[in-house]
Write a protein that binds this DNA or RNA. Sequence first.
DNA 1: GTCTATAGCGCGATAGAC
DNA 2: GTCTATCGCGCTATAGAC
Lengths: 192, 192
Amino acid sequence: MKQTDTKTLILDAAQDLIQRLGVNGMSYQDISEIVGIRKASIHTHFPKKDDLLVALLDRYSDRFLRIVDGILATSDAPEVKLRRYCSLFEATLNSGSQEKVCLCAMLGAELTALNHPSVEQVRNFYRANEERLVTLLKAGQQNGSFRFTGEVTVTAALIFGLLEGGMLIARAQGTTNQFHSVIEQLLQLIKG
Amino acid sequence: MKQTDTKTLILDAAQDLIQRLGVNGMSYQDISEIVGIRKASIHTHFPKKDDLLVALLDRYSDRFLRIVDGILATSDAPEVKLRRYCSLFEATLNSGSQEKVCLCAMLGAELTALNHPSVEQVRNFYRANEERLVTLLKAGQQNGSFRFTGEVTVTAALIFGLLEGGMLIARAQGTTNQFHSVIEQLLQLIKG
DNA sequence: GTCTATAGCGCGATAGAC
DNA sequence: GTCTATCGCGCTATAGAC
């Protein structure tokens, strides 16, 4: 696949637009202006908007989870792994000139306006992330570096919800620096 | 103001639609079908869609913060107050037959697609909530019922981000029951 | 205040030439 | 694979009768 693969450029533009403006704020016209192609040509690569969304979610989820699994596969301490995991969300927020939130945070808000295949993709992304967090938290508990009461699955949901929601609030308030402090505070609480 | 005030009915319908589908998923046509009025008539009460959004955010913020201030004004223990505050978000999630998220969680996601007045309204809602949480957390720290390291403002942002984000995730995954457990887990962590 | 009718726009999508 | 041209739709918004 060439670097200037049109399909890739379309996906890049679509992802950027959705992370900033939402699904309904992304149009074939917007993409065409970014990529430098006529909007009718986009239909050659993605006949329907749903096709584009499905492909985009596949790519996003694969990329993200690949990085997460890379972190989990290291020999780092659980606390370090968790910090690195959280920093992925920080990196998204600070990427590019415009502040972006996680693709699946945007789609989660607009979920009831999506069609079936993408709804399941978003849910799978959430579930996959929480599963990774469960693994990470269990390792930290056994290791003694995490000390908290209550179920591990609930704590995983707590962490993931905070990361997705914290991004939204931080972007709106322009307090992306504080988002880092919030994550550190979370780590302190988990460490007990 | 009569109970069947058309203006009120329009606001009710708009709020319900936005909490379920987002701003772009709410149209004058949708509202007209719910209220039982022609869509052109809605413009009599709210000439532009922005006018409707501004009025809706005013009403929502006033109502919500009035309830919060009512909780703060009681003689309940800080821990009880915080639990009651969090339960407001649970109540929203479980209200009606369709699951709804906080109006300002939806608007936070779509923020960059909104116009100026509403953007500030959403930011003010976030700030007002975090200010109340700061007051509550300080009282709990002095009282000895909350024990956590780090700044109070950061902890307030952590709690608020979790509540707004946790709603989105819970709605998507259909785990509204777990959202309750997440809140209890948060309280345990704050209590130290 | 509500109605019918319509203007004007942007959108997703398709047909057909090159 | 990209282009021009166009269709059909839903939307916000307005004009004018009742």
